[in-house]
Design a binder for these strands. Structure first.
Lengths: 325, 325
DNA sequence: ATGAAAGCGCTAACAC
DNA sequence: GTGTTAGCGCTTTCAT
């Protein structure tokens, strides 16, 4: 059977409220007593019961990350960084990889202090009308009913396009999901279209029909066989970039000599690819820190809620785009 | 403020114990009453409090997955599959990506019904002496103090070696972490050495010093420059295989024409690579199902515990090894 | 079929 | 400093 504070109380001949105080390192307990109690607790193998604790404190000190798409590298990296930031804030992070609605439901019942949502396709109408757990989403602000941290996708795409134009690429293709329902993907696509318009260039699109490496590999390969080869490409994510690179490589095209590449997502992994890949996006640590800070703020001061913001992306030039035509 | 069953009781003019019964779909409540209560509950936006519930039922219906290494694709895939299987068993799965000891601690305090451990480097002595939550580990049985599901790594390596020998490869190199502390990695390495011995061949080793794609890419590339090129390679994991393939490709070597490849890890993603890669290992769904079934068994019937077993791996031949020299 | 009441493990007033 | 006690939200006997 599980050890409770009452067991410790018996073993130490004090009342169980004293045990409670001792375990919480209250100054109201004499150091000797505290010491003794702590030793006994340890000896008995006591493990605090968070449920009981929560019931009275109303705090779980835990936040839930809703993350249905577990195998996108860029999100993986973001999750790791968020975890690091949470630790700094002395919050425990729990993940759920069920579908978003189920996860939100579970975390609500668990009464986590707050939730972080990595999901863009949430059917808004299916959400619980009243959610009494603070929820912060990583997505596209103003489309959502809850606070959202986003990225100035339009600016990101403009930075990429400008850089490619500067290197005198005559044609630029966007590789990614076109016309999908994911809001972040939509924003990138639209941002690209705008940026091209501003630069009076004809936008090209390579539809990947999915976000996996394999999707990009397949579709880019097909495209290269059927269409004239563009000077340069902008990939919508890390995984897409990897697939695109492989497709080019297989087709005997060199990066950046034959085709220049810039990818969305600002993560260090772009450094380690075969040819280091240029990237635009909000550096992942900054993104993670903002998400965590904002969520903590939401939890601590629900009254003055800013409903979200859009972060400024940065361009990191690497070899994949360094070729002036 | 949060709605409790007492609020619903007030709103429906019944006692709160009746509300509790109604919410739990007890047959002791008249259908009409039940219906009415359920409607009211829904209307008020009631969300059950799992902490309170646990306190009396002693069941969370939740299991925790301890998973410190979030970005190994093969484990990612395993986690997804485990999640699917858990759902079938009507258990909620929660992940923690903190380091193993911290995660175990957290899940213990949360009183999850059970824990699954994807971690091989656990310092056994630092573990809580008495863990009163059932813990099942994915690793190497008999080395661990707790129940463990493993894989017959030796057999896996033998299958791979035999297949390469059958295709008359004269030399076989093992690509992976050599002499590391990870038990699964150790088992693979040792299995390879044994299998080579049995076949009277001299084992070659390519030390990757890490488990990332980048580690393999870097080290294999270096090896190819300095050493004679082996006929064939056995990669210790999916990520290692991807890195190895890239290194070969960069060095102008064709798979399988110049070098044959077989990788450990039996996941569908090997189908989608550039050249489909042959693989040995326990198919991931079977692995996931075994882990979940075993853990559930451990939770339900802690008395007769089998302390673990080793699953039989299978060989899947794809293009990467189909070349008779 | 419904209600009253005990109690799960814990914290936080408050009393001593 | 330490003990007493109420109560968090819920399930579960046990009465009615």
């Amino acid at each position: 059977m599980k050890i409770t504070i009452k067991d410790i109380a018996k073993a130490t001949n004090v009342s169980y409220s004293t045990v409670s105080k001792a375990l919480n390192d209250s100054p109201l307990v004499k150091p000797d007593t505290k010491q003794f109690i702590l030793e006994k607790a340890n000896e008995l193998g006591y493990t605090p019961n968070y449920s009981a604790k929560y019931l009275v404190t109303k705090r779980t000190n835990t936040i839930g990350l809703v993350w249905p798409e577990i195998n996108r590298l860029a999100l993986s990296e973001l999750a790791s960084q968020v975890n690091v930031q949470m630790k700094k804030q002395h919050k425990q992070m729990l993940l759920s990889i069920n579908d978003a609605l189920d996860s939100i439901d579970l975390f609500s019942k668990m009464r986590v202090d707050g939730m972080l949502l990595f999901e863009e396709d949430l059917p808004q109408d299916q959400l619980p009308k009243t959610l009494d757990v603070p929820l912060l989403s990583y997505g596209v602000p103003s489309v959502n009913q809850f606070p959202t941290i986003g990225v100035k996708h339009e600016l990101a795409m403009e930075l990429a396009v400008q850089e490619l134009v500067r290197c005198q690429n005559q044609s630029i293709a966007y590789v990614g999901v076109i016309g999908g329902s994911g809001r972040r993907q939509q924003a990138k696509e639209k941002g690209f279209a705008r940026a091209m318009e501003k630069n009076s260039m004809e936008p090209l699109f390579i539809q990947t029909n999915g976000l996996d490496v394999g999707d990009a590999l397949r579709e880019v390969r097909k495209y290269l066989k059927e269409q004239p080869i563009p000077n340069s490409m902008i990939c919508s994510s890390y995984d897409i970039a990897i697939g695109t690179y492989r497709a080019l490589h297989q087709s005997g095209l060199k990066v950046p000599e034959d085709v220049s590449l810039i990818s969305y997502d600002n993560i260090p992994q772009f450094e380690e690819t075969d040819v280091p890949i240029s990237a635009v996006g909000v550096p992942v640590e900054r993104l993670a820190k903002t998400l965590v800070d904002e969520l903590v703020h939401l939890i601590e001061k629900p009254e003055h809620t800013h409903s979200g913001c859009e972060l400024i992306p940065e361009l990191v030039v690497r070899r994949s785009s360094q070729n002036v035509r």
